[in-house]
Write a protein that binds this DNA or RNA. Structure first.
Lengths: 350, 350
DNA sequence: TTGTACGCGTTATCAA
DNA sequence: TTGATAACGCGTACAA
């Protein structure tokens, strides 16, 4: 690999001059500039960023710690991160922890979880990344960022429950409200909801959004219309029967997968979605475009979450902190992004 | 940030001694070793990888150039790459070109495409990556790697058509053969095929696999059973009617999305998949698990492609090239990975 | 067993 | 307008 020294020698100028030209410093003669530029081109010289980073003590690189890149939310979040990094000319060092693939569904209950993450963070710091974004596989409280971390960090799509590290999350109350309110606008009053797992934040907040929408529309909240699911297609399938027993005219499923299970049950029992009963989902996964009829659902703001998390991080790195601009709950820094209702064919006027 | 120098001073030893201890060099007293290790722990010292890389002239880092991380094949391929890198203790610097998001469907016909990529490659080299993996959004011939590239490179899921850079691709002939042969084993003889876009390699090879399976089973190839699609769900929907006209008993769709369109048409016309007609897909996208009945399809070996590409790359980096172990076609280095048939409920015995 | 001294490729300071 | 030179943090001969 050819170095600045060799370029300088070839041009009969000093290293400093070549460096000045490369960095657009003033005080350099037009003539020598042209000559040096030409030689650089000829020799196909590429500056060594590693050496430059050592000298300038910055790398313009952030570390992205991804719990598992194959879960559905990860790529869009990463896309948001890279989008912002591109604008700001930052680099992304990607660490795919592969936790799902390695340990299955409850990796985060492993005792060594925190140590695994801590070790990865050490190595990132050793590589002189200037900040860290942590992307969990699904939203939850997460103690993964050490309190004594020497560099800024943010969590995208999960709660740090920390006063130091910001959390960027989905506004699930608003999302569920939007979906439920839309169903109500179509004339429905008897609306079942199929929930996710019991202790999930998503479940809690989405239920709250559902309740608020009923309240604002002066519809009594009937707890019997709340059917327990666990996010899986199968649980949606099982819950469908229970919902139909209650004579509801619409079902709000807390994710698209469970809506898929509901579709299956309805199909088997000869009911037609959008006609005999209205169904809405949540997430806007690919599958919602392959259901018949197309599923009305709420698009998760994953791209925005990644982008916003990255923006917060880079602001912190560059000392441009505006923490107080954001909502704080109990001193925690929580930024909520809003989803977007995708109106398709599964919810119809009553 | 605390440096080796400060550790040395704190321990009253020289920098060299600390360095030797860190790198497990022999000739170091047990006593000083323990002391130094303790101080390192106390001071929370982390070696500066940037400085180390500059000195040792290697970074153990590869660049992953991803055309668009949000397309469905990308995450699994990246997962394969990171899997192998983890084993070999390499890092991956991720570049998400965002080509789909930025320029839409025919970005690769842009005039500046090659220059965009070339520029990114320059920057990766400047960051001293030791090799590059290029991951296109879909398989195709691709002139994106400059012939005079100074470091090793491989293409994962696309053809370089170069004698220098290996291509790791899906064995589509085998895949389509497997699917078609399975359909035949179920007793079907009148099997339509809905193709992808006309000039795609995938279309060509999958058709060939279909034809070979017919031939090996002594079934006449009827060109009328080949219906043109374009990969989209809509094209599958439109092709379904044409296929049914021919009185076929099974349809092989060259991807899952078109199978989704076929399902839709069949549902609207009151036909039952798996009973009135058998359907098979290709790709094993998420949607195949949300169709009713579940779609029998071929799982793309995306993880293996990423992993194998990474293995080839790192072998090259470490001077451990075994090119001649792999098939060469016209001097090109092409490695084919095989997909796996996922037998579900959409293909039934005749 | 430990320490000294140099160099990796670059930027930055200051003198010429 | 240009050049000499000292850092940046680390690894490694070679000397002690």
């Amino acid at each position: 690999m050819i170095t600045i020294k060799e370029v300088a020698k070839e041009c009969n100028v000093s290293i400093a001059t070549v460096s000045n030209i490369l960095n657009n410093k003033p005080n350099v003669g037009e003539e020598t500039k042209q000559k040096v530029l030409r030689v650089i081109e000829e020799m196909n010289y590429t500056p060594n960023t590693v050496a430059k980073n050592l000298k300038t003590k910055n790398t313009r690189t952030i570390g992205a710690l991804i719990e598992d890149i194959t879960v559905f939310c990860a790529p869009e979040i990463i896309d948001g991160i890279t989008n912002y990094c591109e604008q700001k000319k930052y680099n992304v060092l990607l660490i795919n922890l592969r936790l799902y693939k390695k340990y299955g569904d409850d990796y985060f209950e492993r005792e060594d979880f925190f140590n695994i993450v801590r070790q990865e963070i050490r190595e990132l710091i050793s590589k002189q990344v200037e900040g860290i974004i942590y992307v969990p596989a699904h939203e939850r409280n997460l103690k993964c960022l050490p309190d004594d971390l020497a560099i800024p960090a943010v969590m995208a799509y999960g709660y740090t429950r920390s006063k130091k590290f910001p959390s960027v999350v989905v506004n699930d109350i608003q999302g569920a409200y939007t979906v439920t309110n839309y169903i109500i606008q179509q004339g429905h009053k008897r609306i079942a909801v199929i929930t996710g797992k019991d202790h999930s934040f998503h479940t809690k907040d989405r239920l709250l959004g559902y309740q608020k929408a009923l309240y604002d529309n002066k519809i009594f909240y009937n707890p019997e219309f709340v059917i327990a699911g666990d996010w899986s297609k199968e649980s949606g399938y099982n819950a469908a029967a229970k919902a139909i027993e209650k004579n509801v005219t619409a079902i709000f499923c807390m994710n698209d997968q469970m809506a898929g299970g509901v579709y299956k049950w309805l199909m088997e029992t000869g009911k037609i979605v959008g006609k005999d009963i209205s169904i809405a989902g949540y997430d806007d996964r690919d599958v919602s475009l392959y259901m018949n009829p197309l599923l009305t659902t709420l698009r998760l703001p994953l791209h925005q979450i990644g982008k916003k998390a990255c923006e917060l991080l880079i602001n912190q790195i560059e000392g441009d902190v505006k923490k107080d601009l954001y909502n704080r709950k109990n001193g925690e820094i929580i930024i909520e992004e809003e989803g977007e209702l995708k109106i398709r064919d599964s919810v119809m006027p009553l």
